[in-house]
Design a protein around this nucleic acid. Sequence first.
DNA 1: GGCTTTATTGAGCGATCACTCAAGTATATA
DNA 2: TATATACTTGAGTGATCGCTCAATAAAGCC
Lengths: 191, 191
Amino acid sequence: MPRRPSFDRDELIDRARDLFWRQGWAGTSLKDLEATLQLKPGSFYAAFGSKDALFALTLEKYANDGRERLNALAAKVGPLKALQDYPMMLISGTNAPTKACMLAKTVLELQAKNHALAKTANALLSRAEAQFASLFTAAQQAKEIDGSHDPQALARRYQSDLIGLRVSAERKGVDATGIADEIADGLARLA
Amino acid sequence: MPRRPSFDRDELIDRARDLFWRQGWAGTSLKDLEATLQLKPGSFYAAFGSKDALFALTLEKYANDGRERLNALAAKVGPLKALQDYPMMLISGTNAPTKACMLAKTVLELQAKNHALAKTANALLSRAEAQFASLFTAAQQAKEIDGSHDPQALARRYQSDLIGLRVSAERKGVDATGIADEIADGLARLA
DNA sequence: GGCTTTATTGAGCGATCACTCAAGTATATA
DNA sequence: TATATACTTGAGTGATCGCTCAATAAAGCC
């Protein structure tokens, strides 16, 4: 009996993610979303509940995509090579709406107000850090890097490096590929 | 004949800087500013012209303070030691409203909209990078680090590291002092 | 085709945004 | 003290914010 929605919900979340990623939370109005998603206010709220709820969905999707891309890379070229190639991959993609990390942007924008979305982004960053740590552990088990290093510490530094790299890549007039190379070189010296 | 303003304009800019630094551009409303500066709308606009004009003043002041602090440090302990100590200094101060870099935050928030303040922040970041480069050059001339390195490349990487460090320090539940130590250690290996 | 059920529409809600301005007040000079 | 010159005040501007809801349209089951 029911009428079906005329849109692909998942594709709408993708579009919203790109918009939020680029413009941030406060920088993206419901007018922007309505225009990009081709949805009138009523449909928008029926589909997603609120701006914040949709933002949360896009954060999860963003984090999942990143995690899957890195895991796929590791399955293909091994843990160390994946960690080495990942930085360049993050800043050389042409389809991404922006180079900077959406999770970092969200924390920076919303943490001062104790917004729930900042906590979400922070937790997803911790999850990414854990993924990095397990790849460093795998690299140690594969004898690709020395066993004396603390995988947790390596992961923390690696994530910090990625965030800095991606902010630099976002800036105009800055060539960040040199930084990506240096991060990869630094990992090579852990052998 | 004229009546004098009843406030210290410079101190007001300081207070506004801390507010903008913490909450960002969109996150700081005129209500917030009026409350923090104890200024009614009319006085505010008479004194500063607009929210954006005041934000620009605070960006300049923020950048100047950072530059002077690093130069003072270098004059005291020399260029290499200054570059090594600066990271920890940035994240261990208790009086700063937030650990993250205000210039980076501004670029991330406003660059997507091509806001003039993003250009200003970007230019100030470039100025900081140039300061780092000249300190690396000075360290080479003092034979503190090897002359084979490109000061410009070192400065670019150093700035990227600082940005990542400061975002990490801003996050809850992350101990960033380890990262600061590693940055300092990395510089020691340039000898 | 009739009926039920849900999606879609868009005018408009109260709140807040950055900002203005005319009226009132305080101060330094003459 | 009188006057000119600012500074201070706060109600109020139009625009935009996220969001609501009653009315309308379309699709599946009988």
